[in-house]
Design a binder for these strands. Structure first.
Length: 400
DNA sequence: AATATCGTCAACCGCCATTCG
DNA sequence: GCGAATGGCGGTTGACGATAT
């Protein structure tokens, strides 16, 4: 049996609330308190649904609400909480006094998500590489009318993908238009159009490990001292940069852009090395068979500081730690064939040793397994596949 | 000046969990 | 224990103002 409606909708007013209605609702609640929403409209003399009254009070009329623009601190709080909680707006709102879940949700969708950069992937000859990155400036569309030529271009691109529907975000429409005429378009999967980023301070998962909402996945790195994104490591010393409001987002976007334009599959954490993805050049090729191997409970840790010269030329993938330490602590590494450790295979974490070294003790294996589980049809080829990988919640991995 | 498109956000919708009788 | 009532939450919609063409 379906649930009955909260109220009879016939004869009830809908749409925007008038000042008179607001006043009536406010007065009633001030006298009688919140609750009993079903009977409230009748008692307050309002031709509104009880649910509508509740929403109006909670989201707009409550005296403790803070109006006005979000501060930089609030914005950063939202991003960080969203990275761990996902779209649980009510929980996020609980950490921001005076802000409602609806307000935060809207702010995320209209302001913060726009700043997200994402990777798109190209699969060519079975060798995936990071082919294109949609960075923030692409998402920051101008307002106003679009030229006919651009409209046509975007429409054609969408039609070629069978994606021309009302659900396409402006960003999706834009990026598809940007890529029209390339095989990137042909190879894109729907989820590839979602937001993905290099910063691992992102991507809430459900209890069973699924991503809550691919399109909602945040990919924003705070740019502060806890930032561990590859871009952050490579392009700047995140221990010394100081950002003003919003600048941390913009600068992160800029850094990522530079990294990818370098055409390196990977760049050494110290920024002076570049990993060549070509196998004949000592690149890293990891097959799914390798991934299927039993993972030792405790693996020898041979990673060194990301400032260590020895890492240069090897593959280094960094997980966000958000642990408050400087960038680049959390890494997994596989050296090139010329490296004496190469034959020993994957290098994982000895958690105690990692801690002793001042690293964050994430277990990258869990992420590799997770990657495999959600991309079962995708053969693991290189670390590039993980560049857009999802966040690693520190607590999740400490509990493993 | 008219038009088309975009950005914003209040309000609505439907589902789910909890409470109540 | 069961079904209805209620509250809460997240996703979506649409009105409206801003802005480019």
């Amino acid at each position: 049996m379906g649930r009955s409606p909260c109220c009879e909708k016939v004869g009830l007013k809908r749409g925007r609330w008038t000042a008179e209605e607001d006043e009536a609702l406010t007065k009633y609640i001030q006298l009688n308190g919140e609750g009993s929403w079903k009977s409230l409209p009748k008692n307050a003399g309002l031709l509104r649904c009880g649910k509508s009254c509740r929403l109006r009070w909670i989201n707009y009329l409550r005296p403790d609400l803070k109006r006005g623009n979000f501060t930089a601190q609030e914005e950063e709080t939202i991003v960080k909480l969203h990275s761990t909680l996902g779209n649980r707006w009510s929980l996020i709102a609980a950490e921001l006094p005076g802000r409602t879940d609806n307000e935060i949700k809207n702010y995320w969708k209209t302001h913060l998500r726009r700043k997200i950069y994402s990777f798109t992937k190209k699969v060519h000859n079975g060798s995936p590489t990071v082919e294109a990155v949609r960075i923030g400036e692409l998402a920051q569309k101008r307002r106003g009318r679009t030229s006919r030529a651009n409209m046509k271009r975007q429409k054609l691109a969408l039609m070629s993908l069978g994606k021309a529907n009302k659900n396409n975000t402006p960003e999706e429409t834009n990026i598809i238009g940007q890529m029209e005429g390339t095989d990137i378009v042909r190879d894109l999967q729907p989820t590839d159009l979602g937001a993905r980023g290099c910063c691992m301070n992102s991507g809430a998962r459900t209890v069973d490990g699924r991503i809550n909402d691919e399109s909602e996945r945040p990919a924003i790195c705070s740019g502060d001292e806890s930032c561990n994104s590859i871009a952050a490591q490579v392009m700047f010393d995140c221990e010394t940069d100081v950002f003003g409001p919003y600048e941390w987002l913009d600068s992160e976007i800029q850094r990522l852009s530079v990294v990818l334009k370098s055409e390196c599959a990977e760049v050494s954490p110290s920024g002076d090395g570049c990993f060549d993805p070509k196998e004949e050049n000592g690149g890293i090729m990891v097959t799914t068979e390798e991934m299927d191997k039993e993972i030792p409970a405790v693996q020898e840790t041979k990673s060194k500081s990301h400032h260590d010269e020895e890492i240069r030329g090897s593959c280094s993938i960094n997980w966000n730690s958000d642990c408050g330490r400087s960038c680049g602590e959390s890494q997994v590494r596989r050296s090139s064939p010329s490296d004496p450790w190469f034959d020993e295979g994957w290098l994982g974490w000895d958690l105690d040793q990692a801690d002793a070294l001042g690293f964050c003790s994430h277990d990258p294996w869990d992420d590799l397994k997770y990657f495999q589980s959600v991309h079962q049809n995708h053969q693991w080829e290189s670390w590039d596949d993980l560049i857009y990988f999802q966040s690693v919640d520190e607590n999740d991995h400490r509990s493993m």
